[in-house]
């Protein structure tokens, strides 16, 4: 397995940039535990369609969220080239399915701009700001909003 271990450090303002359905996104590097290649998931019954299932991460059961589907960009047909970004969100370990990790970059907070009003509803729901770069625009994902509001199926 091609693991790219990304040590979280104290360096401030570092972001992991990646692509989902051709669009550029990024998340705070502090949330990222590691980046793995795609592995087949075990499908969960009654799950939301953006939940791809669960994988075995060194003995822990970790759900994988299809970012494209979650962000309203259509479901991903994952293949060997896709990556799973392992993140910590509110004490939970969650894998995020993305097309490719493009960069790790340092951006001052000042460069983070509010989401333009014209953005779609689903984009505004998960994107906390945008960053203009030479190549275009990075959308910063607010990880906490990706998960369902409550754990599903408690009833």
């Amino acid at each position: 397995m091609k693991d790219t271990q990304t040590e979280s450090t104290n360096r401030n303002g570092e972001l992991v940039a990646f692509q989902v359905s051709g669009q550029d996104f990024c998340i705070d590097i502090m949330s990222v535990r590691e980046i793995r290649g795609w592995t087949e998931t075990t499908i969960l019954p009654h799950a939301q369609d953006y939940v791809k299932g669960v994988i075995n991460l060194r003995g822990a059961v970790v759900p994988v969220i299809d970012l494209s589907s979650r962000l309203g960009l259509g479901p991903t047909e994952p293949g060997p080239r896709h990556v799973i970004i392992i993140t910590m969100i509110d004490g939970r370990t969650v894998g995020l399915l993305a097309d490719v990790v493009s960069d790790i970059l340092s951006v001052a907070d000042a460069a983070l701009q509010p989401v333009p009003d014209i953005a779609s509803e689903s984009a505004r729901a998960y994107v906390s700001g945008v960053i203009a770069t030479d190549q275009g625009m990075l959308r910063k994902i607010e990880l906490a909003r990706l998960l369902p509001a409550s754990r599903p199926e408690v009833a």
Binding site: L44, H46, V51, V62, P63, V94, P148, S150, R151, V154
Partner: peptide, 8 residues
């Protein structure tokens, strides 16, 4: 732990 309860 990382996900939640699933019916069944």
């Amino acid at each position: 732990r990382n996900y939640g309860q699933v019916k069944g």
